[in-house]
Each structure stands twice: as structure tokens, then as C-alpha cells.
Design a protein around this nucleic acid. Structure first.
Length: 729
RNA sequence: GCCACCGUAGCUCAGUGGUAGAGCACACCCUUGGUAAGGGUGAGGUCGAGGGUUCAAUCCCCUUCGGUGGCUCCA
């Protein structure tokens, strides 16, 4: 007797172990037809969620819970499990189609993803696939779907399975199998698309939909390249992306959403709205902020600057370069050389060296090198060999130079060190919109979100051990103010902690415990879910990161708060304690936006270019009906400007309809249409962005005051208190 | 950095082995029009750059720069 518990709590009894499909059939013919798979779990388990996703043909050997997976859940929502099954199965179908069209193609790995799937494959020498072939592949796939062949699972003992794969000669599949064995698999499973031994098959853990005909809609999307196991020394593979849905409508909607996402892409909007420019001649990854983009950035800086003053920060400025010794002390040079612009070395030094026949290798060594005294002092101070002996050389051989700063902390540390501090003075909070330069790989550059020169809204807090928790909390509250003012709620928080058995960390373990707890506690105050990630801490301290997704689903780290026990030692920072003895401060690095560039890029997508009034480059556009109302329009703009509102008037020769269209395209939050009637009654006719209708008339002075108030309060568009809200009540 | 694809007017994009086109934007003229495009005229391009093949290259080939999508990488 096998007892199956269904999601509604009812129990079905079977005399012998039923398959998922048989259970479905026992419930109803309709369900049997639409069933794609099931989730099984032990009796009492939280059904559906915790169970294991299995084939329809899976036999349930003992008492168990079972949720039948169909394309749509009972509440009409699309089932992620169903999409997983569909996409995994479709990956097989695509692989079969491609192997038919391109004999000799070797398969590697083909998993389903959140919105699509891919299959990595190795094309034989000289053969390639191009986007032009997608139609051909789709046609071949359509045939396989039309044949409605069943996905048939069979298993082999490990030894037999490995022997089979060895005979077939695919090192990729053999490797997959070996890894499955290492991970604890007791046998190896194959899925034939049809009949084993007769039809196409693939080594696969499953599960799959019952038959190819269940794939309602699919599309081959794109090609990319990848490396086997992500290692560029191994085989270069072709990755073919596709997606599948239960119905054509869902696929079409997905395609529409993708198009919408592309329209929201900050690179597209940035060009359309003239927010920033990247110029070939200036360089890759170097952002030119246009007048409009600069307004957005400047407003953000003013906003955060005001918050910083409230929290007791001091504004500082530091130069864009520093001597190599500074970064040799901080440890950034030469260890992070790969991601730094090359050192700036004086021309005379280089000429002399070249004349003396100095090799490139030697040149590099002399730039990287330090004096014996430098090495001894730093190694003693840190208690570790942070400077290896092979970097030590005679002082007269060293070449000094400068580095474009990759971070601001060394400069700030030197400001702190420039005067003595009492324990009473701490915390010292130094803030700077500091521009840093990093040599990112060219393939990694992306609009404003990954660049080579960027400005961090950086600050370094020099605090006593007992102040770490409170200051971390203060940093987080700043982040919270920023995110809530901007209506950004879709972010993830990562708390990076020590690896439990790691030895690479500097600082006292007891202090680490306290700092980690401080980070956890602070993260809790944000009221959003956060993940603790052991091993993700920097070697110098725990950290809290904020991660958001862009419109095409890529994750970007924005703000960060990091506790640092390392730099204070390296720079020998100290303060005088109550005991009149020197004590080591702790540094907290924090950048709530992360970088102005990345943050603005993400913000453009967050608002789809429709910034709230306070941030928008242009806040009000006045549209005179005709030249007859030009003077009244000018008067309105002058009144708005007097209140600090960014307003312009469209004196163009167009009809008001055309002016509205242009202003709407520029995503200006408010339009004030003025004609003879308005002038006579001292009113303006108001339109708000995103609202089709004319909102009606508002007295001249009330409009000016209302807009100014909305801006001062930094309200989100349409929020209570805005002019728009007042007029749509 | 690696692989694939792409690069034509300010923007979005057509097109061709015989040195180029549209729409929008821009300028000028007509129009003075009450809520998402009035009409006309005109200006604007070494077809990313360099080299090669060819009688002839924007088009074919090579190199290079830049972009996009992935991979790898982000102290």
C-alpha cells in the first residue's frame, strides 16, 4: 500500500507503487493530459516547495507527498517548475536538431536558466553556426516537437555507463559523468528522445517533460562563446541560447518584455536623453557627463552631501595621483597591478635606463621594488612578510613614480595621520567624491555600470573598537535614506563574513566576531532580506554589499560598507587613549552609491529615464499656444527660475500638440501650457509626465510654489504632496 | 584579455563591386494653431581607420580602433 498526499491534504492510496502520471490519471483525465512532471517529498514535508522535481514516469516507491506540475498553477500563475522542465527538454531538442544539421558536433552541457536555456557544444574544425542558421535549427526542432516523441529515461550502473561513454568517445560527457559520480550518484541516467537505442539520447540527470510535443513555443535566441569549465586554457565552446514556453502567447510576451527592457537600457536612454557620452577618442570606459547628466549627478551629490553634514562628516579633497610608495605601503601596488593603469614614471629616469640597456623585466622590478628599510618597517608593523625579500633592492636602483589612484583610502589615511588624535575626537569621518581609475578588461566595460574612471561617494571613518557597531549602523542608515528617497526597494544585501577555517585574515579574532555581529545587526535594520556569505569578507575585514539588477537581469554591486583592520596598521595610524597610550583605530570604508557612474546608470533604468522632478535635468517646460502668449510664458519661466526650478519655454513655431510630444519624449515631469485664456486668468494648464489627460488649471503662484515645494521635498513622481497628486485627487 | 556578431548623416536604420538613401532632429519660409507630429524648401556623409584584391571597393580579404552579446575578471 502506497499513500500519496496531495497539496490539498487529501490522501490517495495505491496497491502498488504508482508513477506520477498514474496518480495524475487517478485524479482526472484533464490533469493527466496537462501534467508535465511532479514534485515528490516525504510525507509531512512542505509539499511542492521542498520536494524533488521528477518525471511523469517516475515511480513513487513509498508513502510520499506529491504535487503534480502543470504549465499553470491552480491560481493561473505560470509554474517555474514547468518552465524548468520545458526548457531543459527543449535544450535536448535543440541539441538533437543541431547535431542533425552539423554532424560531428559534440555536446557538453545544457542547463535551463531563469528565463532561457543554453547548450554548450564543440563544433568540428571549420564548422560554425551563425545567427542566420537559427531558422533552420528552429525548423528542425519543430519537426522533433511535431513527432511528439516521449522522453525515455534509462539508467546504467556506473561502470557500464562509463564504459558506454568511453566507447562513444565524448570526453565532455565522460567528465560530466565522472563529476556526477564524485558528487555521489549511484548510477548514470540517460534520456532518449523516443526509444533508447533507436532515437537520439543524452546523458542527463533529468527530469524532462513526458514528450517533445509538450513544448508549446520555443525560439533560438543567440550565440556566444564559452570555455569548457570556464577555463580559457580548455576547449572553446559555442554556447547556443534558446528559450521555451508552454504557449505561443507567453513566448511573445517574453519577447515583448525583452524589447521593453532594451528600451530601458541606460545606454539607450542615456543617448536619447543626452545624459552622458562615451567618446572613442577620450577612451573606453571613460564617461563624459553632459550638462543634463551632470545635473542628475549634482543633485544626487547635494542630496547625500546634506545627509553627510547631518551625520558629522568632514568633506575633503585629494589629488588623482599619489606616489608609488603610498600604494606600496597600502599594499595596492604592485599586487593589484592587473587592474591599475600603468605607473607614471619620469621620462628622464626611463631614458637613462634605456640608454644603459636595462631590460623590461628589470625596469618592472625596479618600479615594483622597495628599500630594505621600507620592507623591514612594514613587515615589522604588520607582523607578517607583506613585502617579500625578493622585492628588496638597493635604494639607488629604485625608480619612483606615481600611480593614478585606484582608491581613495590611502590618501584619507594620510589626512588622518597628519595630526594627532585623542580618543575624544573619534570617530573622524572623512568624505570625498573621489575619482578613481581602474584598468578593467576591455570586454568587461559596459555603459556607465562598468567603467575605467569613476567617482566614488567615498568616506573613511576612523573609529575606536567600541564605536564600530554604531558607525556601521550609521552608514547603513544613510543607505536606507538614499534607497527609500529614490524608491529603490529591489536590492539584495550580502554580508561578507570570514571563512570559518581561513587563516588569511588580519586582526584580532575577537574583534572580528564583534565586527561581524555589528554588520549582521546593521543589515537587519534595513528591513530587506540579506544573505550571510562566509568566505566573502575581505582579508582585512567583514563587509556589507548592496546589489541590484539591471533591466536585462545583470547584477551590479552598488554601495558597500567595509570594516578594515589592515590599513591602520600599514599606515601606523594611532590615537591617544584614555590611558595616555597610543591605540590603533579601525577604519570603515563606505560608499552608499558605490560609484556615481554605476549608480546613475542603474538609476536611469530604475526610473526608465523618468526621473522624479527634483532629479530631472529639466523640471518644467512651458508651452505657449502661440507667439501671442510668449510674454506670459517668459514671465512664468522667470518666476520658476527665481525659485530655483529648472524651467524652459518652447518658443518654437510648432503647434502645442507637437510641443507636448517633444516634451513627453524628453521625459520632462511637468508641462505648463499657456495661452491667452490662461494669461487673462493668471493660471497655467498643467500636464504631468505619464498622464494622458490635461490635469486642468492652477493659479500661477500656486503652480510655482507647488513645483518648488515638490522639488525641495525630493518627492517621487506622483507621490502625495506633488503637484500631480494635488491635481489628480 | 578570449570568441561571435556589428560599425553608413546628430539619432534610428535601409542599400549597392560602378564613390549613397529614408524617417526624426537641424536651418529657412508659409502657417499663430488650446493638449502626443500643420505644410514647404534646404543643409548635412572620405559609408570607423589603415592596407590589399580589382579597370573600379562603402560592399570582397587582412590588420587595427570602437560597440554589442557571452566567457573570464572586478581589491
Amino acid at each position: 500500500m502506497v499513500r500519496i498526499t496531495l497539496p490539498d491534504g487529501s490522501v490517495k492510496e495505491f496497491s502498488s507503487a504508482p508513477t506520477v502520471g498514474e496518480v495524475a490519471a487517478s485524479i482526472g483525465a484533464g490533469l493527466a493530459k496537462s501534467a508535465l512532471g511532479g514534485r515528490v517529498g516525504a510525507t509531512g514535508a512542505n509539499l511542492a516547495k521542498d520536494g524533488e522535481l521528477v518525471d511523469l514516469a517516475h515511480r513513487i516507491e513509498g508513502d510520499s507527498s506529491l504535487a503534480i506540475v502543470t504549465a499553470k498553477n491552480r491560481d493561473g500563475t505560470v509554474s517555474p517548475d514547468a518552465l524548468y522542465l520545458l526548457r531543459h527538454s527543449c535544450a535536448h531538442i535543440m541539441a538533437e536538431a543541431i547535431q542533425r544539421l552539423y554532424p560531428g558536433v559534440q555536446l557538453v552541457y545544457g542547463p535551463p536558466l531563469e528565463t532561457n536555456f543554453y547548450y554548450d557544444m564543440l563544433f568540428p574544425d571549420g564548422k560554425v553556426m551563425s545567427a542566420d542558421d537559427f531558422e533552420k535549427v528552429e525548423a528542425e526542432m519543430a519537426k522533433i516537437v511535431a513527432e511528439n516523441r516521449p522522453f525515455t529515461r534509462y539508467e546504467l550502473p556506473i561502470a557500464d555507463g562509463i564504459a558506454k561513454l568511453e566507447k562513444e568517445g565524448s570526453k565532455f560527457k565522460l567528465d560530466n559523468a565522472q563529476r556526477a559520480v564524485e558528487a555521489g550518484s549511484k548510477s548514470l541516467s540517460w534520456y532518449a528522445t523516443g526509444e533508447p537505442g533507436k532515437n537520439w539520447e543524452d546523458l542527463c540527470r533529468g527530469p524532462h517533460v513526458p514528450a517533445t510535443g509538450k513544448i508549446g513555443a520555443f525560439k533560438v535566441l543567440s550565440l556566444a562563446s564559452s570555455y569548457w569549465k570556464g577555463d580559457e586554457k580548455l576547449d572553446r565552446l559555442t554556447r547556443v541560447y534558446g528559450t521555451a514556453f508552454a504557449t505561443k502567447e507567453e513566448l511573445e510576451q517574453h519577447v515583448r518584455l525583452q524589447e521593453e527592457a532594451r528600451r530601458r537600457d541606460h545606454r539607450t536612454l542615456g543617448k536619447q536623453l543626452r545624459l552622458f557620452h562615451i567618446d572613442e577618442m577620450v577612451g573606453q570606459g571613460l564617461i563624459l557627463w553632459t550638462p543634463k547628466g551632470s545635473i542628475v549627478r549634482n543633485e544626487l551629490q547635494n542630496f547625500i552631501g546634506a545627509e553627510l553634514r547631518k551625520q558629522g562628516y568632514h568633506q575633503v579633497y585629494t589629488p588623482h595621483i599619489g606616489k608609488l610608495d603610498l600604494y606600496k605601503t597600502s599594499g595596492h601596488f604592485p599586487y593589484y597591478k592587473e587592474s591599475q593603469f600603468p605607473a607614471i614614471v619620469e621620462g628622464d629616469d626611463l631614458t637613462k635606463l634605456c640608454d644603459s640597456g636595462c631590460s623590461c623585466g628589470e625596469l618592472v622590478a625596479r618600479i615594483d621594488g622597495v628599500s630594505a628599510q621600507f620592507a623591514r618597517e612594514l613587515n615589522e608593523r604588520t607582523g607578517r612578510e607583506v613585502i617579500a625579500q625578493d622585492r628588496v633592492m638597493d635604494a639607488d636602483k629604485l625608480i619612483n613614480g606615481f600611480l593614478l589612484k585606484p582608491m581613495n583610502c590611502p590618501h584619507h589615511a594620510k589626512i588622518f595621520a597628519s595630526e594627532p588624535h585623542s580618543y575624544r575626537d573619534l570617530p573622524v569621518r572623512l568624505a570625498e567624491f573621489g575619482t578613481v581609475y581602474r584598468w578593467e578588461q576591455s570586454g568587461e566595460l559596459n555603459g556607465m555600470t562598468r567603467v575605467r574612471g569613476f567617482t566614488q561617494d567615498d568616506a573613511h571613518l576612523f573609529v575606536r573598537e567600541d564605536q564600530v557597531a554604531e558607525e556601521v549602523l550609521g552608514c547603513l542608515s544613510l543607505v536606507k535614506i538614499i534607497f527609500s528617497t529614490l524608491g529603490m526597494h529591489e536590492y539584495r544585501v550580502r554580508v561578507g563574513l570570514r571563512d570559518p577555517d581561513g587563516t588569511k585574515y588580519v586582526g584580532d579574532p575577537a574583534n572580528w566576531d564583534k565586527a561581524e555581529q555589528a554588520c549582521r545587526d546593521a543589515a537587519k535594520t534595513l528591513g530587506v532580506p540579506f544573505s550571510e556569505e562566509p568566505g566573502e569578507a575581505a582579508f582585512y575585514g567583514p563587509k556589507i554589499d548592496f546589489v541590484v539588477k539591471d533591466v536585462i537581469g545583470r547584477s551590479w554591486q552598488l554601495g558597500t560598507v567595509q570594516v578594515d583592520y589592515n590599513l591602520p596598521v600599514r599606515f601606523d595610524l594611532s590615537y591617544t587613549g584614555q590611558d595616555n597610550k597610543p591605540h590603533r583605530p579601525v577604519m570603515i570604508h563606505r560608499a552608499p552609491f558605490g560609484s556615481m557612474e554605476r549608480f546613475c546608470g542603474v538609476l536611469i533604468e530604475h526610473f526608465a529615464g523618468a526621473f522624479p522632478c527634483w532629479l530631472n535635468p529639466e523640471q518644467v517646460r512651458v508651452l505657449p499656444i502661440s507667439e501671442k502668449s510668449a510674454a506670459y510664458a517668459d514671465e512664468l519661466v522667470a518666476a520658476l527660475k527665481a525659485r530655483g526650478v529648472r524651467a524652459t519655454v518652447d518658443h518654437g513655431n510648432d503647434r502645442v500638440q507637437a510641443k507636448i510630444k517633444v516634451a513627453a519624449e524628453e521625459k520632462i515631469p511637468y508641462m505648463a501650457v499657456v495661452g491667452p485664456r490662461d494669461a487673462e486668468n493668471r493660471v497655467v494648464s498643467v500636464r504631468a509626465r505619464g498622464v494622458e489627460a490635461n490635469l486642468g488649471e492652477m493659479p500661477f503662484d500656486a503652480f510655482v510654489a507647488g513645483i518648488a515645494a515638490e522639488i525641495d521635498a525630493r518627492l517621487l513622481s506622483g507621490a502625495p504632496g506633488t503637484v500631480q497628486a494635488a491635481m489628480t485627487k
